[in-house]
Amino acid sequence: MGDEIRVRILIGKAGLDGHDRGAKIVARALRDAGFEVIYTGLHHTPGMIVETAIQEDVDAVGISILSGAHNHIFPEIIRLLKEKGADDITVFGGGIIPKDDISGLVEKGVKAIFEPGTPTGDIIKWVKENVQLRNP
């Protein structure tokens, strides 16, 4: 990799849910695939996640939600990114998210939702193909 500028990704846990197995595995897999990964830790609000994304100047935000609060948290993150003029940051996510809710989240601007059982290789491939450096 050397001095090459790498795609930076923020992996976040939003809301009160503490189930972080998936978030940590995805963070580790993306790191091992050569991305620069920042993990927020637990119990963040959408506002805290957007703040971190901007300060860390990331290219994408990946959110893991298993609490059923996805229909609130994803749109709120996208709204706040827009408000801060950072809506070129790609938002994706995963967790326990019913199929019926996915199209609604995509309409609101979430670029991809990875369902349970997704191989880490599929997530890495998707990030490589869909996330560009915002400031190359």
Partner: peptide
């Protein structure tokens, strides 16, 4: 639900979107 587990009333801002979900 998560707000009850974490000690938030359901009208607390941090409970938004989570009330009755899990």
């Amino acid at each position: 639900d998560m707000p009850t587990l974490m000690g938030y009333d359901c009208d607390h801002p941090r409970a938004m979107g989570e009330v009755g979900k899990e």
